[in-house]
Amino acid sequence: MQQTDRELKKGSAELLILSLVDRRARHGYEIAKEIETRSAGALKFKVASLYPLLYRLEARGWIVGTWVEREGARRCRFYKLTPAGRKILAAQREGWQKFVAAVGRITGIENA
């Protein structure tokens, strides 16, 4: 899968980001990097695609960004899941699993 379908990516992007900031807060670059690494390069987010998404999630109240300052380093903004976001994430995870399972049953692709 060299180039993932654009629509699919957009629909699943929210789920990806929410998953990544579930356990710990991450900043935007880290999120992009993490998606790229974990998908072995299959999924890539540019600044132009990542940040509108982050801000949208934040506007919905699913994640929250806070500025963190560290000595000797530049200030950056960390995002973390809110309790509301956690509920959404759980629901989306379930929905995604059902979707994948359904697609799997139809296409015969085993769900890992």
Binding site: H27, G28, Y29, A32, V47, L50, Y51, R74, R75, C76, R77
Partner: peptide, 8 residues
């Protein structure tokens, strides 16, 4: 500031 950090 946020995006610049990313680009950097």
């Amino acid at each position: 500031e946020e995006l610049a950090y990313h680009l950097e």
